[in-house]
Every structure is written in structure tokens, then in C-alpha cells.
Amino acid sequence: MAVFKMPSLGADMEAGKLVEWLVKPGDTVKHGDIVAVVETQKGAIEIEVFEDGVVEKLMAELGQDLPVGAPLAVIQAPGEAAEAPMQTAPPVAPQTATEPVAPVAKAAPPITPRAATSAGIAASPAAKARAAELGIALESLTGSGPGGAIVLADVETTKPTAAPSPAQNRGAYLAEMRKAIAAAMARSKREIPHYYVTHKVDLSAASDWLSAANADRPPEERILMGALLMKAMALAAREEKAVNGHFGKEGFTPSAAIHLGLAIALRGGGLVAPAILDADKKSLQDLMEAMRELTMRARAGRLKSSEMSMATLTFSALGESGVEAMAGIIVPPQVAIVTAGAPGPQPLVRDGEVIAAQAVTLTLAADHRVSDGRLGSKFLTAIDAKLQTPEEL
């Protein structure tokens, strides 16, 4: 018997709002299944389960704000007898919560037989959906259903109040995201002794290889320079293990897997850095497809909990336009981040002569508790070396 709990979805997360259950008691789940959707300051995150079994009990209600570690469900392992005298909740169809944000709950009671509730307010799913559509606060209604539950008729007979405009909702959401980013980055700079190493990489070989590789590909299938940079970085992290892992209460724990966080700018503002799992094992084509798909889902606000919590090292790039270099801030509990300035023609010395060549400036920010400038230099030069033989990536 295992209690499935609210996962930590980033160093800046303290709580999340449960907005959708995708399972009900009696459902069979397996490792990696998406079972719920939680709304955080960085958007809606799909929550995965990491054990096989049968959902025995849902312990959290739609609309609740739940702190990290709060119980969400009880999962019975295969072949395990049901726990007695546990009172399991009745089957509940997958629902979506649309009511206003509720205060943080101190405890997560099971879903009750009469209706799914939100922060202590009993209401039918249809009533909640219609109330949200009309901009009516459930707290303002008196229920006429069983046990005082709010039903659709109670909503329909109430004069609607003005609902926030999409622009207002978007502005509030971005303001909350900026708060979360500010808190995480302030913590990072306060607690992590950063050091920085910068290196200019000649991209002539990589650019020529890309031009040939993309010659016969349609635009949607072309590989971008960012994929080469990420693959070279992932392979270099195999050699310099002190940049890949997490720093916790027991110190640094290196990671055998290389899950590269990709910094993604969201439309209208904000930033997330979900992980591409096992980036070092992906082909360039697969890595490019993963980058495109992850960016699309991040901007649609549909990321997975594993993507938000499992990054071991982060990459951030300015893209094709921007300044020559930038220095990043480490995302706790990671211990390093590599940032890339905009690639373009830059003066390089080749065979004793100054020439203009395609180049990019990479900057490593790393945790001085784990590594030092010498190791950081080796890491960046290893990335450089791999980019000189792009056909081997």
C-alpha cells in the first residue's frame, strides 16, 4: 500500500491546486501514467504516478491548494489485499475544477459520496462548470441539493457577476510566475556560491554539417543548432560528472542519468525549464523533436511532473538573435547551467590570422561547493571538441 503524494515540481513550488483527476478508485495504473493535473505558478502540470497498482482511494478534492508532500491518493500494489477497515471513496468520473482558487488546506479529506467539493463547498460538476462560465462565486450560492449541495438550478437562478477578462487572468498568472521565478533565483544566488567560466566555440564545422544535413529536409524536420549544442553538452556531462546532479542536505549526489533542462520563454513573459530525459542517449533528430514538442507543450501549459522535477543540468540559449553572451543562475537543486549567446560571425584566430567565422559564446555557471574553475573549463572545452565533429553527435 503506497500513499501517492503531491510532488515537488521545482525549487520555487510550495503548493499546487488540484484541478483534474484522470483516475477513479478501482482504476489500474502503471509507472508513468498521468493520474491528475495540478495548477502551479508555472502552469498546469500533469502528475505522473511512479508505482504499479490499483487506485484504492482519492484523498484530495478538486480545487484544493495542497502543499508539497500532501497525500493525493492511496495505491494498492499488485496482489496486495485491500487495507481494512479503510473507507474507500465511491467511483468518481474524471472531472475538471473551474472554481476560484481556494485557501491552502491543512488536510486533504476523501471525496464524499454526494458531490465533489471545493474547499468545503459541495457542488455538482455541472454547477461548478456553469458557475465558472458565468463568473459566479460558489461561496455566494445556497445549495438546494442533497445535504445542501449546490446544483445546476441554483446557479442558473443567480444573476452573474462580471468575470475577469482573459487579459486580466493572463496578467495575474504572469505576475505569480514572476514571483515564483524571483523567489527561486534569489534563493539560488543567496545559497549557492556561483563561479563562471566563458568560452568561445568555433561553429564552422557544425554549421557546414547542419547545412548539408538539412538540405533535403522540409522546414518542420530541420535540425537546429540548439540541438547540436544540447547533445554536445549532454555527452560532455558524461565525462565531467561534477556538473550533473543535485545538491541536498547530504551534499552533492551525481546523477547517472543526464536529464537536460531546457529554458523556454513563454509567450507574454515568464520562463520554465522542463527536462528532456536521457538527452545523451537521443539521436540528434529525436532530440530536436523532443525540443519542439516540449516547447509546444510548455507554451500550452501542459507539462509533466517528471519534466518539472527531474532535470539534472540546464541549458539556456538566446536563439538566433540577441547579445553575444549571458551568464545564468543555477536552478536549485542542480549545480550547473550552461548559457549560449546568439551565434553569428565573430573574429577568431585561425592559423595565426584573424578571420570572421560562425561562433557562439558559452558560459558555465557552476556550484563552487561541488566543482571549480579548472573542471568547469574542462567541461566547456569538451563541449567545444564534440562540436568540431558534429557527424559523431
Rank of each mutant, 00 (worst) to 15 (best):
A2C: 11
D12W: 04
D12Q: 10
M13Y: 00
G16I: 04
V23E: 01
K24F: 14
V37P: 03
E48I: 02
V54T: 09
E56L: 13
E56M: 11
A70T: 15
A77E: 12
A82C: 10
A84C: 06
A84T: 07
P85F: 15
M86N: 12
T88V: 06
V92C: 12
P94C: 11
Q95K: 06
Q95F: 03
T96L: 12
V101M: 05
A102H: 11
A102Y: 08
A105I: 00
A108V: 05
T112M: 02
A116T: 11
T117N: 12
G120K: 02
A122V: 06
A123N: 06
S124V: 09
R130H: 06
S140K: 08
T142H: 07
G148D: 15
A149R: 03
I150H: 05
V151C: 10
D154I: 01
T158F: 15
A163R: 13
P166V: 10
A167S: 15
A167C: 13
Q168E: 11
R170C: 10
S188C: 08
Y196H: 04
V197C: 08
V197F: 02
A206D: 15
W209F: 15
L210D: 13
A212P: 15
D216H: 12
I223D: 00
M225Y: 11
L228D: 05
A237S: 07
V243A: 08
G245I: 01
G248W: 08
A263W: 00
R267N: 14
V272Y: 03
I276W: 03
D280L: 08
M288A: 03
M288E: 07
R299P: 00
A300H: 10
T314N: 04
T314L: 03
A317H: 05
A317G: 11
E320P: 10
A325T: 07
V331W: 01
P333V: 04
Q334G: 03
V335M: 07
A336M: 03
G341Y: 02
E353V: 09
A357F: 11
V360H: 04
V360E: 09
G373L: 04
K378T: 14
L380G: 05
L380V: 14
L380Q: 04
T381W: 13
D384Y: 08
K386E: 07
T389Q: 09
